[in-house]
């Protein structure tokens, strides 16, 4: 087996794992705190990616897009939560899945209306063009940037959850929303901000992913399937669990392709099923 190929795929796996992390983080956050299954999470990624393409591609504002798009998507998330999702909290998981799947359909169709049905792509900014050579492997500079940026975002998220007042309220509400409310926490507001935070990370995942790959209206659904697998494999408790699971899934997919070109995704879902079957999963208690 060609070791340099394995090494190249290893690097590739880390990069795609980073995008999975950003997406899975929000999914597991919303599930963990609000006990809510959000099938529309992939469409938030989609909105982020298309907004990123428009801003970075047509207007040439890649750097502003990294900041503005997550804010926009976070705002959209907040609006969605207020208009629709809070009505589904008490409805049980089946209706949450149905409602958010319906929402995903509406968003995807809206995206097609605005941006058209075809694959679109955008170039990385000039500053991040070119490649690094590590041994015989090449890694585009942009991908290294994505890894670094995701690391930074991960730290910020960790800080928000573990060290900020909002993080404290969020964990308290997740533990017991009645008790938190009794102690003066505005639980609906915490939920809304949690959802916005999850949406914003999905949005930035979209912005960062767009220059690495083409985006089609189906991209959201595709990547969300994987994100669900990551959440199942990584569990809900810690950021680091989700992070490690994201890397694992990225690596399994990427290295799997070397040995079995069509089978990379099969391995991911087999892994997902095995984890569900062999562990007493936290999802079960939720």
């Amino acid at each position: 087996m060609d070791l340099s190929l394995l090494f190249a795929q290893f690097l590739n796996g880390i990069v795609i794992g980073m995008v999975y992390f950003l997406l899975a983080f929000g999914l597991s956050l919303i599930f963990g705190v609000q006990n809510f299954v959000n099938f529309a999470h992939g469409s938030l990624f989609l909105i982020g990616a298309y907004l990123g393409i428009t801003m970075a591609g047509r207007l040439g504002w890649f750097w502003p897009a990294i900041v503005i798009v997550p804010l926009l998507v976070g705002g959209i998330g907040m609006a969605i939560e207020w208009l629709l999702l809070r009505r589904l909290y008490a409805a049980g998981h089946i209706y949450q899945i149905l409602g958010t799947y319906g929402l995903a359909l509406v968003i995807v169709e809206t995206v097609i209306l605005v941006w058209g049905p075809f694959t679109q792509s955008v170039d990385a900014p000039d500053l991040l063009r070119g490649v690094f050579r590590i041994g015989s492997a090449v890694v585009p500079v942009y991908r290294v940037f994505v890894v670094a940026a995701t690391g930074l975002i991960g730290l910020i998220l960790w800080f928000i959850i573990q060290r900020s007042r909002f993080g404290l309220q969020l964990k308290a509400s997740a533990e017991s929303s009645e008790m938190s409310a009794a102690l003066g926490v505005n639980v609906p507001s915490v939920f809304r901000r949690t959802f916005a935070l999850g949406a914003a990370t999905a949005g930035i995942a979209g912005v960062l992913a767009a220059p690495m790959q083409g985006v089609t209206p189906g991209s959201g659904d595709e990547i969300m399937g994987i994100a669900f697998a990551v959440v199942v494999i990584g569990g809900l408790t810690t950021i680091s669990g989700v992070f490690l699971a994201s890397l694992a899934v990225g690596l399994v997919q990427s290295i799997g392709i070397v040995f079995w070109p069509e089978g990379g995704s099969i391995l991911v879902y087999v892994l997902m099923a095995l984890v569900l079957l062999t562990t007493r999963h936290e999802l079960a208690s939720a």
Binding site: L84, R87, L88, A91, Y95, Q96, L98, G99, Y101, G102, L103, A104, L105, V106, V108, E109, T110
Partner: peptide
């Protein structure tokens, strides 16, 4: 037209 289906699903969930 799938947008209508989406709306119908949302309504039936709510």
């Amino acid at each position: 037209w799938p947008m209508l289906l989406g709306i119908a699903l949302i309504l039936s969930a709510i």
